[in-house]
């Protein structure tokens, strides 16, 4: 006997929501919201702590031509008529911040769980959630939660979205390089094909501190495959130092000392099929060995 789809969906929602601390959410809503116009989801701003990693989860669907069902190549497009949910950050004066806006694209006409962990911009103190239906589309959202109480994998790592457990319609804050995309394996796990010059989310680190970078993935295109940890100074758009990071299917750990002056880092990736990228701070290995 086949289980009715709505039961499956409900169970899935229950399962997913159980990974986050519902009770500790900064914001939560079980209500179904449907809109054909831009609509702010929250009546008031949501206070946030820029030093902490946050996670947003919600179920959503949309209508129209800009969906997976209408266009199997929808992942490749960046059309303004794609429906999305925007996280707009506000400073201490409740003024919008020009940088750091996050938008999650809703790409399916079926209910789908979207998720993204993120660090707010350093000067953000609050955010607003805004629904942006594309064109003539109707955007539907429900079961939304914003929290700083994270699931296990997310809580253990410094970098946001170390694994890709919410499927291949999520972008997780990663920029796919040429030829890159998220794919779901036949066994249901999602991997990130970095492509040429794929970039992970950028996040803050301490300089002169040691970090361990564990990469689980499979290089393709032989010797052209590579990963570099890029170090950025405050406000810089280009890294001032890059360091090679190892990867293998079994997982490789690389210990690196973050150079002085580094404010944030990201991974620049060439031709890797990633399962996991976990970055954690660690004690000085030299002192540890001694």
């Amino acid at each position: 006997m086949r289980m009715p789809p709505h039961i499956i969906l409900a169970l899935t929602v229950l399962l997913v929501c159980s990974r986050v601390s519902w009770a500790e959410a900064l914001y939560r809503s079980t209500d179904l919201v449907e809109t054909i116009e831009t609509q702010e989801l929250t009546a008031e701003r949501i206070a946030i702590d820029p030093a902490r990693k946050h996670q947003l989860l919600f179920l959503a669907k949309t209508t129209g031509e800009h969906t997976l069902e209408a266009n199997v190549r929808i992942r490749l497009t960046n059309h303004p008529s794609i429906s999305r949910l925007r996280l707009a950050f506000l400073d201490q004066d409740n003024q919008p911040l020009s940088a750091g806006r996050i938008e999650l694209r809703v790409l399916s006409s079926e209910w789908y769980r979207y998720s993204q962990a993120f660090y707010p911009p350093a000067d953000a103190r609050a955010l607003r959630l805004v629904l942006l239906p594309g064109g003539e589309a109707t955007l539907s959202v429900k079961e939304l939660v914003l929290t700083t109480e994270l699931a296990v994998d997310e809580a253990k790592t410094l970098n946001p979205n170390p694994v890709f457990e919410y499927g291949d319609l999520n972008g997780y804050g990663y920029q796919c390089g040429n030829g890159g995309r998220f794919y779901t394996r036949p066994d249901g796990t999602t991997i990130w094909k970095s492509g040429f010059c794929g970039v992970s989310p950028q996040f803050r680190v301490e300089d002169n501190a040691w970090y361990s970078i564990v990469c689980v993935g499979k290089p393709y295109r032989d010797r052209k495959a590579a990963i570099f940890l890029q170090c950025f100074e405050a406000g810089a758009r280009r890294p001032f130092k890059s360091m090679r990071v190892a990867v293998s299917e079994a997982g490789e750990s690389t210990d690196l000392l973050i150079p002085e002056g580094t404010e944030s880092v990201s991974l620049l990736c060439y031709f890797i099929l990633f399962e996991k990228i976990a970055i954690t701070q660690r004690p000085n290995p030299i002192l540890t060995e001694e």
Partner: peptide
Amino acid sequence: VTTWDDHG
């Protein structure tokens, strides 16, 4: 095309 695995 290489997708979720390297099809070479």
